[in-house]
């Protein structure tokens, strides 16, 4: 088996965005929606679609925006995982149909009641016509994801892989994305992957 490497990572949590240990953006107070909006505008101004997305997609697209800056997206596959799926938006859709006398399901909400839509949004934003999957797990399944990513690379189905965790439920959010490729310095091992998630703990 060829060795693969972690090239770059990005953490979005606690009103901060970190790329490769550099603090790229912080936002002092306010709800997550303000933080996502300001952080996105800080990085990239003109993409009106961003503001139409649900919170999970905003988080995923935001993290991707920061990590993919200056990166080639050629053959870049996408592997995303979270715990709550699209539950944050599921609740909103349910509210719109809960009352028979006020039954107005919204198409723009309903479309986000699929967890993989946030991956679709990243793919559209960066033109990733590549391998794409969304998994749901209570905790980041390090061994499974690393095997899956290694498969994509060694089978030639991807040149590089953008993968990680994007979780949003009722204002609680955290994202850890990283890029894996056959070239680099930091080896793509379970230990090194787990290390990236330590940013979430402190």
């Amino acid at each position: 088996m060829l060795t693969n490497y972690i090239n770059k990572y990005c953490v979005v949590a606690k009103q901060r965005i970190i790329v490769d240990a550099d603090l790229k953006f912080t936002w002092e107070n306010g709800p997550s929606s303000d933080f996502f909006k300001e952080a996105f505008k800080h990085q990239y101004a003109a993409y009106p679609k961003f503001f139409k997305m649900d919170s999970l997609s905003k988080l995923a697209v935001l993290a991707a925006e920061y990590i993919l800056e200056g990166e080639s997206t050629d053959g870049l596959a996408l592997v995303l995982i979270n715990k709550s799926g699209s539950m944050d938006t599921d609740v909103k859709h349910q509210e719109s149909i809960q009352d028979e006398n006020n039954f107005f399901p919204s198409p723009a909400t309903f479309v986000y009641t699929l967890a993989n839509i946030c991956g679709g949004e990243i793919s559209i934003r960066h033109g990733l016509q590549t391998e794409n999957v969304f998994f749901v797990a209570d905790q980041y399944p390090v061994a499974m994801v690393s095997a899956y990513v290694d498969y994509l690379l060694s089978s030639g189905k991807a040149n590089r892989v953008l993968c990680g965790w994007v979780e949003f439920y009722q204002e609680k959010y955290e994202a850890v994305l990283y890029i894996v490729s056959p070239e680099g310095e930091k080896r793509h091992t379970e230990e090194n992957i787990s290390f990236l998630f330590e940013e979430l703990a402190d």
């Binding site: 009106p48 107005f104 919204s106 198409p107 723009a108 479309v111």
Partner: peptide, 17 residues
């Protein structure tokens, strides 16, 4: 305004609601 197909469906809901 650069609206798309989902926006059109959303306007149909707005008209109803």
């Amino acid at each position: 305004l650069g609206l798309d197909s989902i926006d059109a469906l959303e306007l149909i809901v707005l008209m109803d609601k």
